[in-house]
């Protein structure tokens, strides 16, 4: 092995591996072990029960919608924060992190109060015939709120580092604003967007605290998968809880794998030849 310049590699590796094993791998292993202690038929019966499938559908669709919303809005927010100087910019910048700092239950209660039929937003929306609280729309709002910072914070640094000369070069070559955005800026932001997207979607899949207050939690309609697992836990049915949780785990893994592949493709150009 080549001599390393920085000392401490074996120690650092040892500590991190032990840490990862205890904090991450052990609980996940226990989950898989618990789920595996069910026979395949029992496992399949639990994870494919109509109530469970309905919960996957509402969770995944809401998470998709929330992520799509954050993709557009988060990118616009990052763009404004990086490209423009306006009074209160730093304040808005700090505000972006608030969903991270706020206990999710507090966020859930606040959102429920606002969007309930007698709330500030809810009363206005009710006149337009839109109901948010206690519907899948409410789940989406809670997910969008808690996962907004991911897209903003992953896109922001990339946008800051984007050489303004690239856009100027594209302009001198006759590119319209539209084609410069689509052909130059967006492809360069794609890896960061994918990273933000996957984080935002994963967080939405697993979000619990903020959602249960606003969702109404009607089985088959507004019951999310994490809540179903929690209900099984309360019933001391640990195996069923683990089985349902394992579906979320597999979904998260698959999604991370897909985004990693997409990211590698988007970053093809950085490979040295």
């Amino acid at each position: 092995m080549a001599r390393r310049i920085l000392p401490g590699f074996p120690l650092a590796l040892g500590i991190t591996l032990v840490y990862v094993s205890i904090i991450v791998a052990l609980p996940l292993g226990a989950l898989v072990f618990k789920a595996a202690s069910l026979g395949f038929e029992d496992y399949w019966r639990i994870v494919s029960s109509p109530r469970a499938v309905a919960s996957y559908r509402v969770t995944a669709l809401s998470a998709l919608a929330a992520t799509a919303f954050n993709l557009v809005f988060g990118m616009a927010l990052a763009w404004v924060l990086v490209r423009y100087r306006f009074p209160g910019r730093r304040f808005v910048d700090a505000l972006v992190d608030l969903p991270f700092a706020l206990p999710t239950a507090v966020a859930g209660i606040a959102l429920t109060t606002l969007f309930a039929e007698n709330g500030w937003f809810g009363s206005v929306l009710a006149q337009a015939g839109i109901k948010v609280a206690y519907t899948p729309l409410g789940i989406m709002v809670a997910m969008a709120f808690t996962s907004l910072p991911f897209i903003v914070r992953t896109v922001q640094p990339v946008l800051e580092d984007l050489d303004p000369a690239l856009e100027e070069a594209a302009q001198t070559l006759g590119g319209s604003d539209h084609s410069i955005f689509l052909r130059v800026i967006l492809p360069l932001l794609t890896p960061a967007l994918l990273a933000g997207l996957s984080l935002s979607f994963a967080r939405s899949l697993g979000e619990f605290g903020a959602i249960i207050f606003i969702a109404g939690n009607q089985p088959m309609e507004t019951e999310i998968t994490a809540l179903l697992a929690f209900i099984r836990l309360e019933e001391y049915d640990y195996q069923a809880a683990a089985a349902i949780a394992s579906v979320l785990l597999i979904a998260a893994f698959l999604m991370l794998a897909v985004t990693n592949i997409l990211q590698a493709r988007a970053l093809r150009y950085t490979a040295r030849g």
Binding site: D163, E168, A169, L173, G175
Partner: peptide
């Protein structure tokens, strides 16, 4: 700029890093 018909070469090249050399040249 975009209608002025000038060719501009930047100090630090400003090539589009995600495009091949041929795609860079074809951009305009």
């Amino acid at each position: 700029v975009r209608d002025r018909g000038v060719g501009f070469v930047f100090q630090h090249y400003a090539l589009f890093p995600h495009m091949t050399v041929a795609e860079n040249i074809a951009f305009g």
